[in-house]
Amino acid sequence: MAARAPAEALSLDIPAHAAHLATARGFVGSVARHFGCPEESVEDLRLAVTEICTEALEGDASLDGIDLRAWADHGSLILEIAPRRGSGALGPPERSDADSVERRRALVSALFPDVETLERDGSPVVRISAPRSERA
């Protein structure tokens, strides 16, 4: 089971609605800059979190929200994205076609080859890491 984020991690919980993808991007962008990530990494992180959250939204109609956690680990920023399941279904999931799903996953892997999908409390957690500037 994946170790939990440290107590000092920055976190944001967003509702399971596509309107909040921009909220997730804003959080990740702010956090990445706070921890001194290069601007290109900031944009890559904003893209990756959008892709991962979109997949979560499309794949699970019972989703209650998505938890985002970020913390510094020596020279890296660690970002975790954890879909949070609710107690009931809100409707059928809007699953993209297979090409779209494959394109999305290939894109995240291209941006962050070390992307990991872990398990915590029976639910998937996606973890990516980005380099921080040397001075951060």
Partner: peptide, 9 residues
Amino acid sequence: SFMDSSSLG
């Protein structure tokens, strides 16, 4: 300023 793969679709 931002475009993801779902937009490409």
